[in-house]
Computed example of a mutant assay.
Amino acid sequence: MATALSLAFHPLLVPSYLFYVVCYQLPGVVAQPAVADRWIVLAVVFGFTFLLPALGTGALYWFGRLDSLLLRERAQRPLPLLLAAISFAGAAFLLHQPPFSPLLGRMMLGMTLAVLLTLFISLRWKISAHGVGVGGSFGLFLLLHLTNAAGWAGLWWLLAAALLALAVLSARLTLDAHTPAQAWAGLGLGISVVIGLVLGVASV
């Protein structure tokens, strides 16, 4: 079960889940593009946040730059995280263009920032990338709930995100992939990026 949770909610898959929920499960949160065209958003997100980073990591492994695709060792993480950050930045650039709603671009910008911070921290310490992913998810739904942008549906997604965060952190600890400090630090970083980005935008 712990392995299944870790795989199902891999940090590279979480962005696709979040954009699906925002685009299709929370009516009124996203104005543009129209519902019929939102598959384009999901295609961009899935391609740039999962396919390209996964292929890049696979290539690094193929050419002997990585010992394992699991990236359990801190020293193995910088190059894959750098590739992911570049790819995430490409998605953020595309989603900042018309006709996409501003929220979509800001979500992707926040995810890019989270990957960059994870990269920098990983140069010295093995912070939990899974924790960052579920922390950012919880932070996003908390923001949507506090601003009442998603109505009652947003509350249920917030509760689901909270339970998921606890389950994923528990899974990472069960697998001995991280210490409790690394897991909770990842969760805190994910939440902090969302709050920091919101405060930064509000102050502009």
Results as ranks from 00 to 15, higher is better:
Leu70Phe: 02
Trp152Tyr: 06
Pro78Thr: 03
Phe19Tyr: 15
Leu18Ala: 02
Leu5Pro: 00
Gly186Tyr: 02
Leu12Asp: 08
Val201Arg: 06
Leu94Thr: 07
Ala89Asn: 07
Phe88Ala: 05
Pro180Thr: 03
Thr57Gln: 12
Ala114Phe: 01
Trp152Val: 11
Val132Asn: 03
Ile195Ala: 15
Leu94Ser: 00
Leu79Arg: 13
Pro78Asp: 06
Ala183Cys: 11
Leu159Val: 15
Leu169Cys: 13
Trp156Cys: 04
Gly28Gln: 08
Val21Leu: 09
Gly58Ser: 09
Ala31Gln: 15
Gly47Tyr: 03
Val134Asn: 05
Gln182Asn: 10
His10Ser: 06
His145Gly: 01
Val201Leu: 14
Leu123Trp: 08
Ala185Leu: 09
Phe19Asp: 02
Met111Tyr: 13
Ala181Tyr: 04
Leu66Lys: 09
Ser122Gly: 08
Leu155Thr: 14
Ala185Met: 12
Leu146Lys: 03
Leu55Val: 11
Pro102Cys: 02
Phe88Cys: 01
Asp176Glu: 14
Ala153Glu: 14
Gly200Leu: 12
Trp62Met: 06
Ala85Phe: 12
Leu81Glu: 09
Ile86Val: 15
Pro33Leu: 10
Pro11Tyr: 01
Ala177Ile: 01
Leu71Gly: 11
Gly90Gln: 05
Val35Gly: 00
Gln32Trp: 09
Ala167Ser: 15
Pro99Met: 00
Leu116Lys: 00
Leu116Asp: 00
Gly151Asn: 01
Ala92Pro: 07
Arg77Thr: 10
Thr118Met: 04
Gln32Phe: 09
Ala31Ile: 11
Leu158Glu: 04
Ala8Leu: 15
Phe138Pro: 01
Phe100Lys: 03
Trp39Met: 08
Tyr20Cys: 08
Ser122Lys: 07
Ile195Asp: 02
Trp62His: 15
